[in-house]
Nucleic acid binder design. Structure first.
Length: 280
DNA sequence: CTTCTTGTTACTGA
DNA sequence: ATCAGTAACAAGAA
């Protein structure tokens, strides 16, 4: 499930490979994956050039030279963007983008929730502005984070998953961040004191940074633009670890519960509900 | 067979 | 306005 670290890994891979390349042909196999009319989609891409590969949250943004329009790609749950020198189409391939040098960008998506769409400046801005600040944005400082949390009352887990607040965190990293911060995912935002907020901020930065360093988490489906698995999987402390002993206190078993509508894994002992409530 | 999985949006009701 | 809860989407795994 691509979250920010996975999408950033793909972005960096593709930036190296396809910037400046000319698109000569587009083939579509799953029209559900394309949010334009197929003719428009092909017309906008054919004989155009990709001038940059950007990202906001989990959304990939390819800048197109001639028209200054953008190709947006969201991988949702099972989407893949794989760059190859040769065609490696399979039954889940939704579209292929052929470059003049013979290389090919594959858009694969088992569950077909992901999408590709060419948008003009106005629509691009509308979609971008609907997302909160990107976790890697220089402006995502502790002060900014504290400000965002002001006058909020919801659950910690829901806040981390809310892309309109901060963009990029999904279910895996939300649980890992809460575990590192030693905060119960069901904590109310307005119950966090300054020290806890600071710990939370640092945990977000540290988990995301470490996950990018290890090229993301492959749990089931995710691969980078070269088709390689992410190596952060072996650093996971709580995600899908229910039933196993907590790696921190080494005695309590990791629990699984539904929070904010998502399955959530946490240690009841280490991630206390309130300060001073740590049972020993 | 049923249930669960996840990112996002839409909708309901408090 | 804000928040919680749920359905919907799709396809596969358990």
């Amino acid at each position: 499930m691509p979250e920010l670290p996975e999408v950033e890994t793909i972005r960096k891979d593709l930036e190296k490979e396809i910037v400046g390349k000319k698109i000569i042909r587009v083939e579509i196999f799953q029209k559900k994956s394309i949010k334009n009319s197929l003719n428009k989609f092909k017309k906008e891409l054919k004989n155009n050039f990709i001038t940059s590969v950007q990202r906001k949250g989990k959304l990939l943004i390819f800048e197109l030279k001639k028209t200054k329009k953008h190709l947006l790609v969201h991988l949702r749950m099972t989407g893949q963007l794989i760059y190859n020198k040769k065609e490696k189409k399979n039954e889940h391939t939704g579209a292929l983008i052929y470059f003049k040098d013979g290389s090919i960008l594959h858009f694969n998506d088992i569950r077909r929730f992901g999408y590709m769409k060419v948008v003009d400046q106005k629509e691009k801005n509308k979609i971008i502005d609907n997302l909160g600040i990107d976790l890697l944005d220089k402006k995502f400082t502790f002060g900014k984070f504290k400000n965002l949390l002001k006058n909020r009352n919801g659950m910690l887990k829901a806040m981390l998953l809310n892309q309109k607040m901060i963009a990029g965190i999904g279910n895996i990293y939300a649980d890992e961040i809460c575990f590192l911060a030693k905060l119960n995912p069901s904590r109310k935002i307005d119950s966090l004191d300054d020290k806890e907020t600071k710990t939370l901020y640092n945990s977000i930065r540290n988990i995301i940074r470490l996950a990018i360093k290890h090229r993301g988490t492959t749990f089931s489906n995710y691969v980078d633009a070269m088709g390689q698995k992410g190596k952060f999987s072996k650093f996971l402390k709580v995600y899908k670890k229910e039933g196993q002993k907590c790696s921190c206190c080494k005695k309590t078993v990791i629990e699984k519960a539904k929070m904010a509508g998502r399955s959530t894994r946490y240690c009841k002992n280490c991630q206390r509900q309130k300060r001073g409530n740590l049972s020993k």
